[in-house]
């Protein structure tokens, strides 16, 4: 049994069958990549995991509990954190404030009305946020407004915000999309480090084969809403079906 079990998931948008009979099992503490050509349904599948979309058929179980019908914030509290394609951070707030919000959320739940105490007076929260910034090499930028950081730093901050909640499953939606080569390599190193140092399961959707093959323990290839194969990276590279559907032009 994997930590995330997807059974027979289907989703239709009007005339388009975006997902069709998707079966997927993500093993605990592994890095599972979902790849596929444009329009294969990767993002739709991710949106099903986080509660943004409800599938027409099938079930999605996280650690034995169904995620279907739950709101994104409830699913986050179950232990699933999501990193977006374009970094979603609180741009108007400082880096430190960005970091404190998930730490508060982790400790206090979805709503708590502490409107009178000072937020910087909360030692536990401040300490945890500072440690996390330090770990991710963002400590010097703590006072900066988040929106003024570089793309790579925004990504770093977003990942830090997700990790500060000690999620059991980290979902990454094309984490290196639109990044320069150097930034991409930095991000790969960061993710490798996270994988080694933490008890965490990572599910990643990615276009960039370089990223996928440097990180993934297992790969599912999706085409036209249906999984074609699920296997180890080395087997995927040479798989004839995959070559045909997706890697055909890019693999050398």
């Amino acid at each position: 049994m994997g930590i995330l079990e997807v059974k027979n998931v289907g989703k239709r948008f009007g005339g388009l069958q975006a997902l069709n009979n998707v079966e997927l099992s993500v093993k605990e503490n592994s890095c599972h990549a979902i790849i596929g050509p444009n329009g294969a349904g990767k993002s739709t599948l991710l949106n099903v995991f986080v509660g943004k979309l409800i599938p027409d058929t099938g079930s999605v179980m996280f650690d034995g509990q169904s995620v279907l019908g739950r709101t994104p914030y409830e699913i986050n509290q179950m232990g699933i954190s999501r990193v977006f394609q374009t970094p979603e951070i609180f741009g108007d707030l400082s880096v430190m404030e960005n970091m404190m919000i998930p730490v508060f959320a982790k400790r206090d739940g979805s709503f708590r009305m502490h409107a009178v105490q000072g937020m910087m007076g909360d030692k536990d929260i401040v300490e945890k946020a500072e440690t996390m910034l330090e770990e991710m090499g963002l400590a010097e930028k703590r006072g900066m407004q988040a929106s003024s950081m570089s793309r790579g730093d925004k990504r770093r901050l977003e990942i830090a915000m997700c990790l500060s909640q000690d999620p059991r499953l980290l979902l990454l939606d094309e984490p290196t999309a639109g990044m320069a080569r150097a930034d991409t390599n930095n991000t790969i190193d960061l993710l490798k480090q996270i994988k080694e140092e933490r008890d965490i399961t990572i599910a990643i959707i990615e276009h960039d084969m370089h990223v996928v093959f440097s990180l993934a323990d297992r790969i599912t290839v999706l085409a036209q809403g249906t999984p074609l194969v699920e296997d180890h990276p080395e087997n995927i590279k040479g798989h004839p079906k995959v070559r045909e559907a997706y890697l055909g032009e890019t693999a050398d």
Binding site: P72, Y73, N76, Q77, E88, F90, S110
Partner: peptide, 10 residues
């Protein structure tokens, strides 16, 4: 950013 807030468990 309400979206991020939602995905932060709030």
């Amino acid at each position: 950013n309400q979206n991020r807030l939602n995905y932060t468990g709030l």
